[in-house]
Write a protein that binds this DNA or RNA. Sequence first.
DNA 1: CTAAAGGTTCACGTTGACGTGAAGGTCAAG
DNA 2: CTTGACCTTCACGTCAACGTGAACCTTTAG
Lengths: 121, 121
Amino acid sequence: MQIGALARRAGVSPRALRYYEEKGLLTPGRTSGGYRDYTDEHVETVRRIRILLAAGLNTDMVSEMLPCMVNDGEFLAPGCEDLIAEFERERRRIDTQIAELHDVRSALTGIISAGRAFADR
Amino acid sequence: MQIGALARRAGVSPRALRYYEEKGLLTPGRTSGGYRDYTDEHVETVRRIRILLAAGLNTDMVSEMLPCMVNDGEFLAPGCEDLIAEFERERRRIDTQIAELHDVRSALTGIISAGRAFADR
DNA sequence: CTAAAGGTTCACGTTGACGTGAAGGTCAAG
DNA sequence: CTTGACCTTCACGTCAACGTGAACCTTTAG
């Protein structure tokens, strides 16, 4: 599969795929002509990358997590044990972020309902 | 209160306070010498700005929300009614973001627990 | 053989929320 | 009246995840 096909299937730009490779998140094969050659597994990998990036992780963190993700969250390679502390830090960061988002959400809800009450008067 | 004092009380840099002013989030008075002059209310305003920015809102959104925030989330000025639709869009964005964070959080938890099981074997 | 579609590697541009000097003005203290 | 701490306004630098050409190569179809 060429880069354009993967881009369409994964819903990202070819540029993004080249960027992920540059950051070590994706390692396609190469054809004799120098074209990148992707497999079906890469589609799933790209989906995971997008989810992790969307949650605010950076590419370094994603590159550490990907080899530790198999199926629905089982464990994979030796080497991942050393990263547990880092993952726990990241999880705390996410908990903090979720809490902050909840605060802002309720603030927004307060403004919205107050606005509605005002408009419905 | 000068900019340095507010910076210490609010836990931000003087540069950030000047930036907030440039973006219309903060409007201090001026002394005869040209120094910015802040009041105690500005401390609370800065705290709100930080919370909103930390939740991923941009300065434009914050500048629209601030005048609509009074006390613990009551309603304030006329003009805020027109922004309700925008606030609802923002709230949906936040809901999406929270869901994404929960997904990544459970993925992290899966990896961590699998790693622990592996280490405890 | 040739054109078109899609690929390749640079390499600079973008956006947002600031950081970081540079060059100089203000003000209370000694 | 001078030092030192603090302030002022430019104005360029940073970082991350790409966007956007430029110049060129590969592959398939007619």
